[in-house]
């Protein structure tokens, strides 16, 4: 059992928790993820690590309520326990030789983009941040991004906070002005990452995307997290849990990944409603 030592609501649907997991905390690096189960009957879900404190032995996770399991997790309180918590899984984000980086987070993806941005900042790289949300009520981690970015662009779809528009707009402007990044790293909804790749493509700047597919074991056993990469004219299968979760954005077949991500959409909706009913009854 793993104790929830701190809980904080970042916005109406996004929650931050610090979980006591000393072995995971000691090893966790930006870009890696954990798998958790809320209770004995629960499903295993992957969540990217939003931060780790090796001294206190805690791991930070930030999640949005999207289905039954995240709904159940959001009802757990400080001092309570979750059943299982395993990690750190996947490969850390590659940082070697990158001196100038653009980090683009969308929605709850900003929670995962933040430790990556902080790591580059700590390593002395020049960090340009672009964070985007649907509207001002959903904004998270503004202060933290301000602290680790040399330049920060803030975007909302409806213009209620920061600039009006999506994250590709400031990226495109910078690239057109001749800005050169060693790497663009983007974390967020698949459709956003796909458009970041398309925006960067004409300028030939490398793009790393962070994939978060459906997963069970997370250790390279089930193959559920497979995705297709287009590499050297061939289509190859890789596994987000052991080969990723970071991938070369130019290689990823996003349309396929989006389709696979919706495999259990009906089930998820049902599970979410059931769980909500459960909590509203009690």
């Amino acid at each position: 059992m793993y104790k929830i030592v701190h809980k904080k609501c970042l916005n109406p649907t996004v929650t931050q928790m610090e979980i006591e997991a000393p072995l995971v905390a000691r090893k966790a690096k930006p870009g890696q993820f954990i798998i958790l189960r809320v209770d004995e009957e629960g499903e295993r879900i992957p969540l990217t690590i939003a931060g780790a404190d090796a001294v206190n032995g805690t791991v930070k996770i930030i999640f949005q309520v999207v289905g039954g399991t995240t709904e159940k997790l959001s009802h757990k309180e400080e001092g309570q326990f979750i059943q299982d918590f395993v990690g750190p899984l996947g490969m850390p984000t590659h940082t070697d030789g990158i001196r100038k980086v653009c980090i683009i987070g969308g929605g709850v993806g900003c929670a995962i983009a933040l430790p990556v941005a902080e790591e580059f900042h700590r390593l002395g790289a020049e960090v340009t941040g672009i964070i985007g949300f649907r509207n001002k009520d959903l904004v998270i981690l503004e202060e933290e991004f301000t602290a680790c970015s040399d330049t920060l662009y803030k975007m909302t779809d409806d213009g209620s906070w920061g600039c009006h528009g999506n994250v590709t707009m400031p990226l495109k402007e910078m690239l057109e002005k001749g800005e050169k990044f060693d790497m663009i790293i983007t974390i967020g909804p698949l459709i956003m990452m796909k458009f970041v790749v398309e925006t960067a493509r004409p300028f030939g700047i490398p793009v790393t995307v962070s994939m978060n597919p459906i997963m069970i074991d997370g250790t390279g056993m089930c193959g559920g997290c497979r995705l297709t990469l287009n590499r050297d004219g061939k289509r190859i299968t890789q596994f987000a849990c052991v080969d990723g979760p970071d991938f070369n954005g130019y290689e990823v077949d996003f349309d396929e990944a989006m389709s696979r991500g919706r495999m259990y959409a009906n089930f998820e909706r049902h599970a979410y409603e059931e769980t909500c009913n459960l909590f509203s009854k009690s």
Binding site: M221, C222, G223, G224, F239, S259, M263
Partner: peptide
């Protein structure tokens, strides 16, 4: 055992295709 093998034929990433492990 480790990662499941796939056949390398078209359509293996469609929804409804599982490895036996999964």
């Amino acid at each position: 055992a480790g990662l499941p093998n796939f056949m390398g034929i078209p359509g293996e990433s469609l929804k409804g295709v599982y490895s036996a492990n999964e």
